[in-house]
Design a protein around this nucleic acid. Structure first.
Lengths: 129, 129
DNA sequence: GATGGGTAAGTGTATACACACGTATCGTCG
DNA sequence: CGACGATACGTGTGTATACACTTACCCATC
């Protein structure tokens, strides 16, 4: 009865896809979540933490911790805003470089995923070291 | 370009659905993940940790930690096996009670989710306290 | 019965996730 | 100006997740 629980299915799928993408992104030194935060900042430009978290569909406090590790890596920085309450996040140059360096790995992960979804038998190769 | 990343989409969806189910399960004192472990054990009977983790699509070591908290709650226990390497997990009576008590909340969460998916306007009520 | 390869599971570490709660700033209204 | 609600954000805590490494046990072969 609980066999078709959409919550379990969604979590299982997210875990599997995350492992897949992480395997390709790992050699570039970042994880799927970090990649998505950097990509979102690249698209939006400097963005307040709350707004960014909302756009990514995650809790604001979760983004706070993720941002802390990304800031430790030097990939993002906190800007000052007119509104003293806001602490907008922005990509640094290093962050943009890391994102660009990871893009090919992301694309390859995406391709392999598509091939697997079509049942392509030759598409189960693992990422190059 | 990265806007349609299936990894981000899957994670976002899993987070949203998890929050939804957690909101209904919280009054019963358990979380979506714990519910799925209990339900899996109820279906399978006593199961080795590796096999159970594999069935749920998560890493073996992740299940080790989840099992620790469930065991602390008294909902599952570790049996002895002929093969001394195996440490099969099994539902306790308390675990079966907790699972049964949570089933209505799980069903309601499922119903609301279905209604929302169909755009039913009256289906956005939150779980009763 | 030793030994060595294979299998089941645990531990160390780091990130991901979110609820409850607290803090600081803004804007408005008296 | 001062009080107050609203807004943006951080912290404390606990669970979830997985990789790298380690431990314990089984079995077959010598």
């Amino acid at each position: 009865m609980t066999r078709a629980c959409p919550c379990l299915a969604a979590r299982r799928r997210a875990r599997a896809i995350t492992r897949h993408f992480d395997a390709y992104l790992r050699p570039r030194g970042l994880r799927s979540t970090q990649f998505s935060v950097l990509a979102a900042l690249a698209q939006r430009g400097p963005t307040g933490r709350g707004r960014l978290a909302n756009g990514l569909g995650l809790d604001r406090t979760t983004l706070t911790r993720s941002a802390a590790t990304l800031e430790r890596q030097g990939w993002i920085e906190t800007l000052e805003a007119d509104d003293g309450r806001e602490r907008p996040l922005a990509l640094t140059e290093a962050g943009r470089c890391a994102l660009n360096a990871a893009l090919p790995a992301w694309k390859e992960a995406l391709d392999r995923l598509d091939h697997e979804a079509r049942g392509d038998p030759a598409a189960h190769a693992m990422p190059q070291r």
